[in-house]
Design a binder for these strands. Structure first.
Lengths: 338, 338
DNA sequence: CCGTTAGCAGTAATCGATTACACATGGACG
DNA sequence: CGTCCATGTGTAATCGATTACTGCTAACGG
C-alpha cells in the first residue's frame, strides 16, 4: 500500500510537506506540483484511520435511527446524507430498533470510533449521550426531543396533530378517533394533544376512549383501527398520527370493505381517515385521505447543517429549531430560527 | 480520556498485558482480575481508531446500496445488520442512488477506512472493487451479480419472473404485459426473460411491445403502466418485476378507476397485476394481486454470514448462492449451497 | 542436578498521518 | 548593514492500541 512516505520520497520532499499540500496549507507552488504529480502516479489516498487517530476525529457522522425500514426515517437519512456528503463527510446509518440498549451501543461506537458527530432520532426518552458530550462531540437531535443540552430539530407536533384533526373536522366528521404511538414517545403524545385541541376548537368531545395508544408501526395502526371500527358505536373518522399507523388504518378500512369517506356526510359503510405524514408507497388513490404532509428530508438537511456548523467550531448555546410540516427553508445557516 | 496505559498503571501491569486480557489471550488469572477491575473503575473502552490502525482492519462492515428508500433494500439491510451485530460488527449503510460515481466514492471510503468488509448491491455493471480486492478485503455481492471473483448471493430472477407471469397465466390472463427496470440492470432483464418463458410455456406470444423498460421506481412503474393501459389494445394484465414498479402499477390502475381483476374472466374495466416482490406499505387489499414474495432479509443474512466466514479466514474459491424467493434457510454456514 | 521447553509478561517497535518545534531563507526596515 | 519577521520546509514526536521479540520462571526429562 502506498503511504505518505512513498509519496514524499517520490516527490523529493518531506512527509510534512505532502500532508500540507493535501490539507491545503501554504506550500511553494513547484513543490505542490511535484506532490500532486507523485500522488497521481502512485494513486495515493491517505489512510483515514491513521488520520483520525492523529486528528482525534474522523470525517464520518453517525445517524442513529429507531427504524430504517420506516420511509419517514429513510427520508431523514437522505436529507442528512445530501448535506453531509456535500461537505465531504460520510454518513453511517445505525438502526436502533427503538431499543435503548442498541441505541446506547451505537452511541458508544460513535464515541470510540471518534466519529465527527452524531445526528440522533432518540429511541429512549433520555439517550446515553454523556460520553459524547464529555468529549465535546457535536450532537444534533432530530424529530424527537431529548433532555440534553444539544441542538434539536423537531416538528411542532401539537400543531401537526391539530391541523390533521382540523381537516377532518372541516370535512364534517364528528366522531373522530385518534390512533397514536406509545405514551413514551413525545411525538405520539404531542400529536394526540393536537387532536384533542382541534376537537375542543370545534366544540366536539375528545372522549378518552377514542384515543388509542398503539405501537407506531403498521400492525399497530391496523389492530387499533380494526378494533375501533368493530365497536358498536364506531367513529366516523380515524386520525393516524404517523405514516405507518396511517398505512395500517387504511388497510384496516379496506379489509373491512369500507369506503374511504371524503366527508362526514357519507353513510355508515364509509369512514374518514386522516394522517400526519406521507404515503410514499400507497397502492391506492389517496385523494380522500386528509393528509398533513411532512418534510422529513428537510428535517434531515436542517439537522445536518446544524451539525456541520458545530463541526466548524460554532460555539453558541444549543439551538432549538421547530420546523413546520411544510418544505424546509433553504438558504444559509439552515434558515435557522435561533 | 482513559488510555490503555492508565489501565496498565492502575492494574500494575504492562499495556501488553492489558491488551491481552481484553483480547482474550492467556494471562495469569490474578492479573486478569486486576486488569478487569482497573477497566471497570476507569470505565475504559479501547479507542477503535488506534486499534484499527494497528490491526489494519476495523470492525465495521460497509453495506453499499442503490437506494435506501426502497423497502427491499432496507430489508436487506436489516438482515445484514442482524447477523453482523450479533458477531460484534457495526454496519454502515452507504446510499449510492444507483450512481456509479457515488458508489465508487463509497467503496474508496470503505477501503481507506480499513473497513473489515463490504456487502454490495451494485449500481454499476462492474463496480470499482479493484482496490478492495487488492487489499484482500472480504466482499460479498448481494441481489445483483458482479463480474468480479467474489461471493455472490442472488435470487434466481429468471425463475421469479417466470413464476409471477405463470401465476397470471393460471388466472386466465392472456395479454400480459411486463414492466421491468433498466436494460443495464441484470435483475430487470432476467425477470423479463422469465416473463417471456412463462408466456412461451403457455403458448402465448410475448410480443415485444408488451415489454416496457422503465426505471425501477414508483414513478417508472406508474408511467409505464399508465401508458400500457391507455393503448387501444390494452393488456389484460401487467407484470411488475419489482416492488416499487408494482406500487406504481397499482396506483396507475387505481387512478384510472379500473378494478383489480382476480382472473382473466373479468370484463374490460379491470386489469390483473402481478408483482415480483412485496408490498409492505400497501394501503389497499392485495388479495387480487399475483404476488411472488421475496425474502430480501434472508438475502441480507446470507450475505452477512458469508462475509463473516471470509473474515474468519475462510479461503476457498468465491461462492455463488442462488436463493429462492422463499424464506431463507437457517442453520449453520448460512445453509450455503456451495 | 542441569538443560530444555513451555508459558507468561514486559519493552519497544509499529501502524500511517499530522503537527509542534526548529531552522533556513529572503525581504523590510531602522 | 544588521535585525527582525514572515514564510516555508524538515525532523521528530505524537495519537493509542497491538504484537514481535526478549527474557524470566518453573516444570520436566535424562
Amino acid at each position: 500500500m502506498t503511504r505518505i512516505v512513498d509519496v514524499a520520497r517520490r516527490a523529493g520532499v518531506s512527509t510534512a510537506t505532502v500532508s500540507r499540500v493535501l490539507n491545503g496549507k501554504s506550500v511553494r507552488p513547484e513543490l505542490v506540483a511535484a506532490v500532486r504529480a507523485a500522488v497521481d502516479e502512485l494513486d495515493y489516498v491517505p489512510d483515514r484511520t491513521a488520520r483520525s487517530l492523529r486528528r482525534r476525529s474522523s470525517d464520518v457522522v453517525a445517524l442513529v435511527l429507531p427504524d430504517v425500514e420506516n420511509p419517514f426515517f429513510t427520508a431523514v437519512a437522505r436529507g442528512v446524507e445530501d448535506v453531509a456528503q456535500e461537505a465531504g463527510f460520510s454518513v453511517v446509518l445505525c438502526n436502533t430498533d427503538d431499543d435503548p440498549a442498541k441505541e446506547a451501543r451505537y452511541l458508544a461506537v460513535a464515541e470510540h470510533e471518534n466519529m465527527a458527530g452524531v445526528v440522533i432520532a432518540a429511541a429512549s426518552a433520555s439517550p446515553a449521550l454523556a460520553g459524547l458530550l464529555a468529549r465535546r462531540r457535536a450532537v444534533v437531535a432530530v424529530d424527537r426531543a431529548v433532555p440534553d443540552a444539544v441542538d434539536q430539530v423537531t416538528f411542532d407536533n401539537v400543531a401537526l396533530g391539530r391541523r390533521a384533526a382540523g381537516l377532518l373536522v372541516e370535512r364534517g366528521f364528528r366522531r373522530i378517533a385518534c390512533v397514536t404511538g406509545p405514551r413514551a414517545t413525545t411525538t405520539a403524545v404531542d400529536r394526540a394533544t393536537g387532536w384533542r385541541l382541534a376537537l375542543d376548537d370545534a366544540g366536539l368531545v375528545p372522549s378518552d376512549d377514542l384515543l388509542v395508544h398503539a405501537n407506531f408501526r403498521v400492525d399497530g395502526g391496523y389492530a387499533a383501527t380494526s378494533e375501533l371500527l368493530a365497536r358498536p358505536t364506531a367513529p366516523d373518522a380515524v386520525l393516524a398520527t404517523n405514516n405507518l399507523v396511517g398505512v395500517g388504518a387504511l388497510r384496516a378500512v379496506a379489509d373491512r370493505h369500507l369506503d374511504l369517506a371524503a366527508s362526514g356526510a357519507a353513510g355508515g359503510t364509509s369512514v374518514g381517515v386522516g394522517i400526519v405524514g406521507d404515503l410514499p408507497f400507497a397502492t391506492s388513490r389517496t385523494d380522500d385521505v386528509a393528509l398533513v404532509p411532512l418534510s422529513p428530508r428537510g428535517l434531515g438537511t436542517t439537522a445536518a447543517r446544524m451539525l456541520l456548523e458545530r463541526l466548524d467550531g460554532l460555539d453558541v448555546a444549543p439551538r432549538r429549531v421547530v420546523q413546520d410540516g411544510a418544505a424546509p427553508p433553504g438558504g444559509t445557516s439552515a434558515g435557522l430560527h435561533l
